[in-house]
Design a protein around this nucleic acid. Structure first.
Lengths: 241, 241
DNA sequence: ATTATCTATAGATCTATAGATAATGC
DNA sequence: ATTATCTATAGATCTATAGATAATGC
């Protein structure tokens, strides 16, 4: 009942964006990463929130992959996460919140994977080819997750859809940086900004293509063959005439 | 009531695939195009079925684009199509049927567009560049529809998902043919089958990319700029070294 | 008679929340 | 006292169908 006071006065618009600020101050260090802080909760202990939300995401991502977002019920999520439906709603305010948490988590993991891949590729003889290779392997490993994002981003409320698309753009940005650096250092022939940008998008999407046309490619190509042919394709952009 | 006899005996599995054959014999001519013939109906007049289903598709596609498949109700579809919910279910057996009809219709239109585009490009000086250009313009024109397929194909029952993916593959096949022809005639330098196949997929998907990253590209590029840069990108595959 | 259409609703969910209960720490 | 969790359910849909009605043609 005492909780009511915190809840009431917001019956129509379930989420007050303006007031969200002073609710979770526990990630002052992380730049603006943990954007999950914007989701309101009734629970006081921030570490508990973090832990429970991780449980929620781990449970939900599997269910969403298997059944899709709409066919998964909040009860299933609660059960798979290991607590009751009532508790679930102490940590999120709507089913869409769960989807947002899932998308954020996936993107964080993809970005982590790509960053690591780029570091590993950095020293290599042919740095770009190596970067592409590492990235495509990340796509291969995370196929189901990437596919999920392609399919369910639309179901997010507008504000969060925007965030997810920004994530997508940030990951593409990693390739822009790599390409720009290689061009600047003379390892790759000169290429103007626009062409670098397009090339970066192409690399991103051709990696995704392996996931969303997997039903075709995995029958006819190994991931290694795919990598080899696509790398050849992409590298030719850098041939001067 | 007499209709019951046709309906009964199939309470669990709503659709009998085996018996579907002798229900609609009205497309003996069309190769196997109108796959919509597999959807059972209680209505006898085949031309009426065709007309009503066109109404259903026209109404549903708009609703799906605006709201997505799951947020659209069968009642909305019926209302927008101009008849009652009861009538709707005389022409389809489930909500998924509507989605399937919509996907088929979209693919038919895309394929039509692409075929025409390829014909127009055929004579041109640089036939491949022209084909790409025409295709990308089709993608641009049909952005919303292509996006819909990317997002909702997953919601189809397995059997129909497969059909939709076959459609996708058939459209890619059009590019395989074009490339193979141009290589054979010597207009393009030699390229083995696998590389032709990959190149065809890349063309398809880079066209789609304009639709599913439109939120980014349309802000920074005109479709003409996009076409120009991507064409340059793709054509370089055909540079011999 | 036969075919097409409509109205009304059964039946099955599903999300989100109120209020009760358990656990924790003073 | 305070915080976290659970049970039970309000309330709102939504799909699909039964049975009634209207339209058409013999």
């Amino acid at each position: 009942m005492f909780r009511m006071s915190a809840r009431s006065g917001n019956k129509s618009g379930r989420r007050q964006n303006t007031a969200a600020g002073h609710r979770n101050r526990n990630q002052a260090m992380k730049p603006r990463q943990n954007s999950t802080g914007d989701i309101p909760t009734q629970i006081k202990d921030p570490r508990l929130v973090e832990r429970r939300r991780r449980q929620i995401v781990d449970a939900a991502v599997q269910l969403f992959i298997r059944q899709g977002f709409h066919k998964t019920t909040t009860r299933q999520i609660a059960r798979a996460a290991g607590f009751s439906i009532g508790s679930l709603y102490e940590y999120i305010a709507s089913k869409e919140d769960v989807l947002y948490l899932v998308c954020e988590s996936i993107h964080a993991e993809v970005e982590h994977g790509v960053s690591e891949a780029l570091v590993r590729a950095d020293g290599a003889r042919n740095a770009l080819a190596e970067a592409i290779r590492e990235y495509f392997l990340v796509c291969n490993r995370m196929s189901d997750f990437i596919l999920l994002i392609y399919q369910e981003t639309q179901s997010l409320p507008e504000q969060w859809k925007k965030r997810v698309l920004e994530n997508e753009l940030r990951i593409t940005g990693l390739f822009v940086e790599v390409l720009a650096r290689l061009v600047a250092s003379g390892e790759l022939p000169p290429l103007d900004d626009r062409r670098i940008e397009i090339a970066a998008h192409n690399i991103s999407v051709l990696g995704h293509m392996w996931t969303f046309r997997r039903w075709f490619f995995s029958r006819h190509y190994t991931i290694e063959e795919y990598i080899q042919l696509q790398t050849e394709f992409i590298l030719k952009v850098f041939i001067d005439r």
